[in-house]
């Protein structure tokens, strides 16, 4: 816990904290704007569909962009600030250092997703979106937490890329690439289910029956991606010369 607090202290006053909350709030906000411009207001949108639309955008575009950026920022900070030499010259285990940074990313992302649901709830209240009740709100929070957990294994390759390149920009380039591939993969039934970064969509929503998708294989691919990224990062970081 103490180490985790230290990792949080390292990002204190970082403008990215505010920017990330602003960034993740864009999708619900835009949908709120659409409601306001719509002649028929919410136009049949229910709270559940509103949450699903926001979730879809988070899983496919905003999430990966924002989460990739955060991951890259947290893991590149010591390289960018030239503090790693001093940190590693203190008796601290390198794997522990990585784990603590990963926990920071996890907590940060969870906070973003929870804030995102709160925003959706507030906008729904303002526009009188149907289906807003305690149970649906609880479900929305549950979905946000689940999405965050699904995303975590997918961030470890970003960690590895960041450690290899040692620059913040690595995560941005990686995330943009992933989003572009996501768009292509979504057009294919096969790739959509087995390409790691579109798998969250398979796991988040009901799979249409006409699609012959093996969810266990998708889960295995997701976990394997996470494992490869995590093991690669730990091995590389153990041997890294600074």
């Amino acid at each position: 816990m103490k180490q985790l607090q230290l990792e949080f202290l390292k990002i204190k006053r970082s403008p990215l904290i505010l920017l990330s909350f602003l960034g993740i709030s864009i999708v619900p906000l835009l949908m709120g704007v659409i409601f306001s411009k719509n002649v028929n207001g919410v136009d049949g949108t229910t709270f559940a569909s509103f949450v699903e639309d926001v979730q879809m955008m988070n899983l496919m575009v905003m999430g990966i962009m924002m989460f990739g950026l955060i991951t890259s920022y947290v893991f590149s900070k010591e390289f960018e600030e030239n503090t790693l030499k001093s940190t590693l010259a203190i008796p601290v285990r390198r794997s522990r250092l990585l784990w603590d940074k990963f926990l920071v990313v996890f907590v940060w992302i969870m906070c973003l997703l929870v804030a995102n649901v709160i925003e959706v709830v507030v906008i729904s209240m303002i526009w009188g979106v149907e289906g807003l009740n305690l149970s649906s709100i609880a479900t929305a929070f549950g979905m946000a937490i689940r999405d965050g957990l699904i995303f975590m294994p997918l961030l470890t390759p970003i960690v590895l890329v960041t450690l290899l390149v040692r620059r913040y920009v690595a995560g941005i380039v990686f995330s943009i690439t992933v989003v572009v591939i996501n768009v292509v993969a979504l057009s294919s039934e096969v790739y959509y289910a087995y390409y790691p970064y579109t798998i969250p969509l398979v796991l988040a929503g009901p799979v249409p029956e006409e699609m012959s998708i093996s969810v266990p294989i998708s889960i295995m691919i997701l976990l394997a991606t996470g494992l490869v990224g995590a093991v690669g990062s730990v091995i590389y970081f153990q041997k890294i010369s600074v």
Partner: peptide, 27 residues
């Protein structure tokens, strides 16, 4: 052992005291 290796790097977003707080607690 205490050391300075090359130009010492610090977290620019923190004060001097906050930076030292990090290293003291890690050690």
């Amino acid at each position: 052992v205490g050391c300075i290796v090359e130009t010492p790097g610090f977290f620019g977003n923190l004060t001097g005291q906050e930076n030292l707080q990090i290293y003291l607690r890690i050690s």
